[in-house]
Amino acid sequence: MTHSDLAARIHAAAHLTGTFTLRSGRSASEYFDKYRFEADPVLLDEVAARMVPLVPSDTEVLAGLEMGGIPVVTALGRHTGLPCAFVRKTAKAYGTRRLAEGAEIAGRRVLIIEDVVTSGGQIVLSAEELRTLGADVHEALCVIDREQGGGEALAAQGIQLSSLLTADDLRSAAAR
């Protein structure tokens, strides 16, 4: 499967039109419903396999953000052999009371994994929290970059964003 084929499959599975409010608070007339490609085990496995070359070689832990980043990080961890941390939006108030479950992050080079990035807001918040816990965070990797300022917002926080696909990749592949 080519990069364009993968983009077309994801577009077919996940692209919706209508009126949507994004996590950033922005309104959008198109939406990429990540759960539609994350729920397809064959498609998710292909996504993870294609993301492997984008993982920086000095990465020690993959950190998936709640909720959509969790299936992606699990699949990616399977392909890379790297341990995974599962990062909540807020630490739970019971049990371990941890923000990041799974692999230890303190003193380790951590790559944040997200499904779709628009403004980068959740990555900024989570990176700050992970850094407070001792993680070394300088990169983030997503499946789809909506190309709406997320990369720039992350760069301002010292985080380099890489993406498997962009919104333009998906639209171009669907137009063929």
Rank of each mutant, 00 (worst) to 15 (best):
H3T: 09
D5N: 14
D5L: 08
A7I: 00
A8D: 12
R9F: 05
I10G: 01
I10S: 04
A12V: 06
A14E: 05
L16T: 10
L16A: 15
G18P: 11
S24H: 11
G25V: 08
G25C: 12
R26I: 05
S27H: 15
S29F: 14
S29H: 14
S29K: 13
F37H: 08
A39L: 09
D40N: 14
V42K: 09
L43R: 03
L43W: 09
L44C: 12
A48M: 03
A48K: 00
A49H: 12
R50D: 08
P53N: 12
L54E: 07
L54V: 01
P56I: 02
T59H: 06
E60L: 01
L62A: 00
L62N: 03
A63F: 03
E66V: 04
P71F: 11
V72Y: 00
V73Q: 05
T74S: 12
A75S: 13
R78H: 13
H79A: 15
T80S: 08
T80L: 04
F86H: 07
R88F: 01
K89N: 08
K89P: 05
A91W: 10
K92M: 10
K92S: 12
K92Y: 11
A93F: 14
A93G: 13
Y94C: 09
R97Y: 12
L99R: 05
E101H: 08
G102M: 03
G102W: 02
A103P: 08
L111D: 04
I112Q: 00
I113T: 01
E114T: 02
D115P: 06
G120A: 04
E129N: 14
L130A: 05
R131E: 08
R131S: 07
R131K: 13
A135W: 02
A135G: 14
A135M: 06
V137R: 02
H138W: 11
E139V: 04
A140P: 07
A140E: 07
L141K: 00
L141Y: 02
V143W: 00
I144G: 02
E147F: 02
E147C: 10
E147Y: 08
Q148N: 13
A153M: 11
L154S: 04
L154M: 11
A155F: 06
Q157K: 15
I159P: 00
Q160A: 15
L161M: 10
L161D: 05
S163Q: 05
L164E: 03
T166V: 01
T166W: 01
A167R: 07
A167I: 01
D168E: 15
R171K: 14
S172V: 08
A175R: 15
A175F: 09
